[in-house]
Nucleic acid binder design. Structure first.
Lengths: 203, 203
DNA sequence: CATTTTTTTTAACAATCGTTAAATTTTACT
DNA sequence: AGTAAAATTTAACGATTGTTAAAAAAAATG
């Protein structure tokens, strides 16, 4: 029942399982009880595809947790939109810095499919942080997020675009199945045309 | 006198100043006092150039704060070492996930120049975290780091290697002046040969 | 100061990517 | 189902990058 709460803050960034970096945090009973205390703060909502949940430059006031559906984050560059991350069922989504410090977001948050979410206001998360166990838990999740992000970033330093696509295929097949190719291309740092060629090579 | 403490956790990642994301956290008197309480936990040390402070795969037990000198982080890929970040005077350096969770580090930490550092044990940082003000402060810095990292990552999605080099030249001239080119090339995601060509174009 | 050693540059060629444009396929909508 | 719109693929060409190897420059060493 607390399953979705357990996943919060765990899944921003890539969810690639890696034996070298096992997920070590253990949810103990006191923490579960503490989190349960704040369960009432979460609201829910439902959005059609291509709904902007947060506009680039706006301040992020809500953190979303996906019940069902698919979300991407993107930013504008010379008139083209560049997607940089994708989220699915069980993932928590927010423009982290904007949400935590109430500053303009460098990127937008937008649904891809019809999406049902839980959401939590920034001020309510601040309230949750008053609880030491919850605060430590959130801090740990932030570290996990950063580590996941670093691993994703590494592939840009060491792999070719083709290898990055193959990694995506192997580790996050959901992305290839549910996300339009034009979004995936910019996520991999290449053009749609180039991604098409890579796909033709692999078949 | 507390200048270097103030900078801790602020400087991992790029330090690019950006009016769009001003650095908002304000150091208040109670926090300064709290940090001063833990000042005695820091030791100091000095290392020659090319000294490994942390080996890839080892557990990071110390966080370093640079008094004087220059440090890089790197990892091995097919026999070649790939640098991904550079640190200078005032910066704090640690393999964040490894340091906080005591798991193997995905990358190494190594001096470039002769380097004088302060350092702090992981368990002592845990002790500092018991203090709520310090804990909130460290949490804020972690968010800042992630935001800086995301902005750096964005340049891989939207810019060409040449633009990334020009950005480095404009925003972090120290890197070009003090870091060997072979390290900078891998940091930009290109080969040394390609970086040489880019430099020849610009002159 | 001369000589190794290392680092950086240059050259040549193959492979890959970006760009533009057209063709094809898929999806959305009435 | 038929039409319009959007997404994806393919083609052609120029630009950029990676690779290998050699040359030049810079740094380290005795």
């Amino acid at each position: 029942m607390l399953q979705w709460l357990l996943r919060i803050y765990e899944c921003i960034g890539n969810k690639k399982k890696n034996n070298f970096y096992p997920y070590l945090s253990i949810m103990n009973q006191p923490l579960k009880l503490a989190l349960k205390q704040f369960q009432h703060l979460w609201k829910h909502d439902s959005f059609p595809p291509k709904t902007l949940l947060l506009k680039e430059g706006d301040i992020c006031r809500k953190m979303y947790h996906i019940k069902k559906g698919c979300i991407r984050t993107w930013f504008n560059h010379d008139g083209k939109d560049i997607s940089f991350q994708f989220f699915f069922e069980g993932d928590a989504v927010a423009s982290v810095e904007s949400f935590n410090k109430q500053v303009p977001s460098p990127y937008a948050i937008e649904t891809i499919e019809q999406t049902d979410v839980h959401w939590l206001l920034a001020e309510d998360l601040q309230q949750m942080r008053q609880h030491p166990l919850v605060n430590t838990f959130l801090m740990d999740r932030a570290i996990d997020r950063q580590a996941a992000f670093i691993r994703h970033f590494f592939s840009f330093l060491k792999d070719t675009p083709k290898q990055r696509y193959e990694n995506l295929l192997a580790n996050r097949p959901q992305v290839i199945q549910r996300v339009p190719l034009q979004y995936i291309a910019s996520h991999l740092g290449i053009t749609q045309v180039s991604l098409s060629r890579i796909r033709a090579q692999i078949k």
